[in-house]
Structures are given as C-alpha cells and as structure tokens.
C-alpha cells in the first residue's frame, strides 16, 4: 500500500474552564480529544461517528489547526502541521479544506455567492486576473450544481442545500488534497442530504480527495466511508473497515450505537428497544471513568475494564479496537 497522506498521532485537545468564585479559582479540564491515532490515504474516506459531545468536531478542527492541540502530531505529506508557524500553516491551507455543519452560518451574509467562492482565490493568488477568477468561480458553481448566473446572489437568497453547495464550492476552489466535512448534512432535510452526500462522493472520485466525514448519522457514514472510526469521550473505540464494522462490530459501544438507530417498523421497533441495552448518558467529561472510559455503561465489563485502559489494538484483519474483550465477544448485527 502507498504511504498515507495524513497521519494523526496521539492528538489531544484539552479545554480549560474556570470554576469557583473569584477567590477560589479552580481550573477544570476537559479532554475533548484524547490521544487519537489514525491515518488516511489519498482518495480514501474515513467516517467519524459518535454521540454528541464526543469530540468529533473538535478533532476535525484540531487537524486543521483551527484549535491548538495540547499534544500529538498531525503529519500531512511529511510535515508536522502542529509545529508550522502561522504563515507556513496558512500556505498549507490550500491543500486542507473544511465544510461546516451549518450551511447558512458558514457564509458571510454580506458577501455574494461569487465573492464567497472566490475568496480563497483572491487570498492565495492576489494577482489573478479578474476574468480568470470569474471563470473559475462559475466553473465551481456549475460543478457543485449551482446555476452560474446566480453568482451575484446573497446567501439569504439561497436554500440551505444551495448554501451547503456554496460552502463545498468554496472549499474545493483551490483544489485541496484533503477535505474534512464536519457534519455537512445534519442541518439539511433528508432529500437534500442525499444530494449533498452524492455530490461529495462524485467530487471525491473526480478530484481524488482524501475525505474525513464527521457525522452522527450512521447510515450516511456507511454510504460514503471506506473506513469508520467510532469515538467515545474523545477516544477512538474502534477503527474498522466499513462493511466489517457494520456487520460485526468489535467494540460493545459500536454495537450499541448501531442498535440505537430508530427502526421505522413499530413491531420491530419494540424488539429493537428491548435489545438496545445502552442506557444512561455519557458521564460528565469532568469525571472521566478510570480504566476503559466506556466501562460504566458496558454490560460486558469485567474487573479488568475498571482498572486498565484498553489500548487501541490492531486485530488480525487490520481493524483496530480498544476493548479488552474484543476477541471473546460476538457482537454480530443481524440485518433485516
């Protein structure tokens, strides 16, 4: 196999919040992203799933240097992005782009669609001829399925789905090598979701992008990903090839996530609810459980889970899992 374009090593992001009164300041720390490792190859899609607040978006932002990581390295084509100075990092941003969750909020309401899409061009190629910028902008609009004659419209004159297309056009205008999609479809309704996901897939094929797709919708992730990483409390529980992950999860949490997907058929839904053993909420990030972070919600836990942190181990088939009992549990999902 070729070398990975992106290699994330032991990446951690900690947020500090102040608590207590003025006289009794206490610093409390939340480890939003805690020692994440993975690698990504050119043209590959990695899905990242997990409950709200598990650190998915934080991880996405940390990879792009929009949030400073506390520890770890982000190796991009041989350079450690976390050690680059501001200007060098700015230059690398040509290759690394992001699509945001809220399509409307991610567009400047005072700028036209054309201005928004061409802003990266002006930023990196200030001497580019006006005509050329215009041509490229219209080309991008057509590529993402927007009518180029709407170039002078403002974000509030577009629908949510169209706004997301503008966001995608902006992120692709510089021909990036890596695109991170931070829940790009969760703010859109289902019919538009499909369009946007298919669009991303087409563009990925056409442009050979490496894609990181963050979402909490498991079916969307299954549709688009090659591999999937499951996160819980800032840690990776499992990184597996997609089909294997959905058919035979290695980690109890992955299994629980899949069982918590709502079932439309009411008869089956009752059965599914009975089978869904995941109860309670994620523990407060301030009180992180000792040992395996999942042990207090896990029905399969043994003594060892409360004491030892399970490392992310590589299995025979190349998948990785952070569970002491991965070998002796059979968590296969029976699909309807």
């Amino acid at each position: 196999m070729s070398k990975p374009v992106l290699r994330v090593q032991d990446l951690s992001v900690t947020f500090t919040s102040l608590a207590g009164s003025v006289f009794n300041r206490q610093e409390r720390q939340i480890r939003a992203v805690d020692g994440i490792n993975f690698e990504l190859f050119a043209g590959e899609t990695l899905g990242i799933v997990g409950e709200s607040g598990c650190g998915k978006s934080t991880l996405a932002r940390a990879i792009l240097g929009l949030l400073p990581p506390n520890r770890g390295r982000v190796m991009w084509m041989g350079d450690n992005l976390t050690e680059l100075d501001e200007e060098a990092m700015r230059q690398r941003r040509k290759e690394l782009q992001i699509v945001f969750q809220d399509p409307v909020a991610s567009l400047d309401p005072r700028m036209t669609a054309g201005d928004i899409i061409s802003e990266p061009l002006w930023t990196f190629y200030p001497k580019m001829a006006r005509l050329q910028v215009d041509e490229r902008t219209r080309g991008m609009m057509k590529m993402v399925g927007l009518l180029p004659n709407q170039i002078n419209r403002y974000p509030h004159e577009f629908s949510g789905g169209q706004c997301q297309r503008i966001g995608i056009a902006r992120s692709l205008v510089l021909n990036p090598r890596l695109l991170i999609c931070d829940e790009p479809v969760s703010a859109l309704d289902v019919s538009i979701q499909a369009q946007i996901v298919n669009l991303l897939q087409d563009l990925q094929k056409k442009l050979g992008l490496a894609l990181i797709f963050v979402a909490h919708d498991l079916s969307v992730v299954r549709h688009i990903s090659d591999r999937v990483m499951v996160m819980y409390m800032g840690q990776a529980m499992e990184v597996s090839e997609k089909e294997r992950l959905y058919r035979k999860p290695l980690h109890p949490y992955t299994n629980a996530l899949m069982k918590s997907v709502p079932v439309p058929d009411p008869k089956l839904a009752a059965a599914a609810r009975r089978e869904n053993w995941l109860t309670g909420d994620m523990p407060s990030p301030y009180r992180r459980p000792k040992g395996c972070v999942f042990h207090d919600r896990c029905p399969f836990k043994v003594k060892r889970c409360e004491a030892d942190v399970p490392p992310l181990r590589r299995m025979e088939n190349g998948d990785r899992v952070a569970c002491h009992r991965a070998e002796d549990l059979d968590l296969s999902v029976v699909e309807a």
Binding site: R61, L64, L66, R90, Q91, R93, K94, L96, Q97, I98, F100, Q101, D102, A105, S106, L107, D108, P109, R110, E119, P120, T123, F124, G167, R170, S171, L174
Partner: peptide
C-alpha cells in the same frame, strides 16, 4: 466565533483581512 469567520480562517485569510472584510462589514 461564527462559522463564517472560522471558514475564512480555514481558507487561509489573514487576520488583517478578516477584520476588514468580514468583521467590519457585519
């Protein structure tokens, strides 16, 4: 802290231009 400012940063726009082009007009 809005997403469009973050988007501008992700697109490599420098601080100076972000203030002039995005903050002040808004």
């Amino acid at each position: 802290n809005t997403e469009f400012i973050e988007a501008a940063r992700a697109c490599g726009v420098d601080h100076h231009s972000i203030i002039l082009r995005h903050i002040v007009p808004n």
